[in-house]
Design a protein around this nucleic acid. Structure first.
Length: 402
DNA sequence: CCTCCACAGGAAAAAGTGGGCG
DNA sequence: CGCCCACTTTTTCCTGTGGAGG
């Protein structure tokens, strides 16, 4: 097999960069109300007053992070004209950080990342109070009068909200003088607020901004705007953007996802060496993205999760699905001991299974047969058996099971 | 309308992990 | 090296629940 030569295939994309995830637009469409509210909430800062704590709610891809970017950089540059004002922003993405301790330790590391003299600290091992002390010290050392701490995806810390209690109180409790500390929390989960303890709710939720999912019209505007830069003229057939916008609105209301769909559709047209992108490309792109997602999810599962899934898979192959968790656990026990892995209790497997169900990899039907039956879940693979089987067999440790 | 099955899923205890410090 | 700290994962224990059969 020989290689094809690399040639510039410029008939579809004029500049595909603008469709990528990493691309940050310099203005944000269809979010005027939210931006106005956001700026309003930050107004005390420009007056030299202590900042309000702000909470942003909304699903992924509705512009929360980009709004924060835009509003804060505007605030910083506007603050420069006042000599008695210095606004510092500290950004931390809390994804994968499940406790307050880790958030605090990572915040310390954000400070230290800018400073080559200091090495970053480990995220385990220190007593909790020492980590907080280090954090106060760094905040104290800031030049500015205001420190705005942005905690993105803060809902991943769950119910352990100690850091959210400590940070806003840093100045009043005397840990930090000379600098006002404000917290901006961004979360995807609307129920996060309810999980917070009462003391945190009082201090932290002074200002709440809600970002609604985009509807099909708004997505259409965004896509058209972006497509104009990304594609050459007349490449998109007229039904492409409406179709992508409709799918996007229907599934998530996320601009990110709608853009991904449009990008993939363009990609398909390019692969097929066609000169236009059609509605059919959008349809196919949607299918591919869904498959990719499942594939990625399965691949990133830990061994025990894969074993649980394998158990359902082999049961399905034998036509014994939908099955109850006891059957699945028995099957799982056979597999796990066959490959010499730890055999977990039924309670743990039950957690794996509901995790798989939440991710949409497994279908779980809740049943209740009443007295003599009780209520239980029945699991099966749904219409994704072939993809899942394929991916499981690629796993080295598991391949012996097939 | 009450009971009672068989599970779901929360909570707490226990076991295990990784790093700091003297 | 032994011990402490804080976290994570797993196990153990237990309360809660919807509806068929009484």
């Amino acid at each position: 097999m020989g290689l094809n030569s690399f040639t510039r295939d410029n008939s579809i994309f004029e500049n595909e960069t603008v469709l990528r995830d990493e691309y940050t637009p310099d203005d944000l469409l269809e979010r005027d109300d939210e931006l106005a509210a956001y700026q309003n909430a930050l107004r005390p800062v420009i007056n030299g007053a202590p900042p309000k704590n702000i909470f942003l709610y909304g699903q992924t891809g509705v512009g929360k992070t980009i709004s924060t970017d835009l509003v804060l950089s505007q605030l910083q540059s506007d603050a420069e004209q006042y000599d008695d004002l210095g606004v510092e922003t500290i950004y931390l993405n809390c994804k994968d950080l499940s406790t307050s301790y880790q958030v605090a330790a990572n915040l310390v590391n954000v400070f230290r990342a800018d400073d080559p003299d200091q090495s970053t600290i480990s995220t385990t091992g220190y007593p909790q109070s020492m980590v907080y002390d280090m954090l106060w010290e760094h905040l104290e050392d800031l030049d500015g009068t205001h420190a705005l701490i942005v905690l993105d995806e803060v809902d991943s810390i769950g119910t352990d909200d100690g850091i959210l209690y400590q940070l806003p109180r840093a100045s009043t409790a005397g840990h930090v003088t000379d600098t006002y500390v404000g917290v901006i929390g961004i979360c995807n989960n609307f129920t996060f607020r309810d999980n917070l303890s009462a003391r945190v709710k009082d201090t932290l939720c002074e200002e709440e901004l809600h970002f609604k999912p985009y509807d099909a019209n708004q997505l259409g505007t965004i896509l058209r705007h972006r497509a104009e830069k990304a594609f050459f003229d007349d490449v998109l057939e007229s039904d492409v953007i409406p179709a992508a916008a409709a799918y996007g609105a229907q599934e998530s209301g996320s601009a990110r996802q709608a853009l991904k769909l449009l990008y993939k559709a363009g990609d398909l047209a390019r692969e097929g060496e066609r000169s236009t992108v059609t509605g059919e490309d959008v349809e196919n792109a949607r299918e591919l993205i869904a498959k990719d997602r499942i594939g990625d999810e399965v691949n990133s599962l830990p061994t025990q999760g894969k074993l649980a899934l394998t158990a359902v898979y082999t049961l399905e192959r034998r036509g014994e699905t939908p099955s109850k968790r006891i059957q699945i656990h028995e099957e799982y026990e056979r597999h796990a001991s066959a490959i010499d892995a730890d055999v977990l209790s039924i309670r743990s497997i039950h957690d794996r299974l509901s995790d798989l169900r939440l991710k949409g990899i497994l279908d779980g039907e809740e049943r209740n047969d009443g007295r003599g039956g009780g209520s239980y879940y029945q699991y099966q693979l749904g219409d994704r058996e072939d993809i899942i089987g394929e991916i499981l067999q690629e796993d080295e440790r598991l391949s012996a099971l097939f």
